[in-house]
């Protein structure tokens, strides 16, 4: 049920990362690998995931890709959270 609701949400265009008391935003319109300490984040085809982490349980890695608004991945040992959001302004598409 919760899965269905997530998949039906519109996809986002921003990845917001909270990492060790800092907030960083990335566009999802790019292919990119981001290294944050012992954690690797990957952005590909408007999706994002934690591709590597040094933490014990690997929950964050096992979450796989996220792309829909308000979906998020946590890694508590690394004080890490990432969330998909959207540019609040209404428009049909983005030129870049």
């Amino acid at each position: 049920m919760s899965m269905t609701i997530y998949l039906n949400l519109p996809s986002g265009d921003i990845l917001k990362i909270d990492y060790q008391n800092q907030t960083i935003k990335y566009s999802l319109n790019q292919n990119r690998k981001i290294k944050l300490g012992d954690l690797d984040v990957e952005i590909k085809m408007s999706k994002a995931r934690v591709s590597h982490s040094n933490c014990k349980n690997q929950y964050c890695v096992m979450q796989g890709w996220i792309s829909h608004i308000n979906q998020s991945i946590l890694c508590v040992p690394n004080l890490f959270k990432m969330t998909i959001t959207q540019n609040t302004d209404e428009h049909d598409s983005t030129n870049y």
């Binding site: 990335y26 566009s27 319109n29 540019n87 049909d92 598409s93 983005t94 870049y96």
Partner: peptide, 13 residues
């Protein structure tokens, strides 16, 4: 209607 990305900050318009 389209938005144009901010060249200094890809998360802004």
């Amino acid at each position: 209607e389209v938005a144009i990305q901010d060249p200094y900050d890809q998360t802004q318009l």
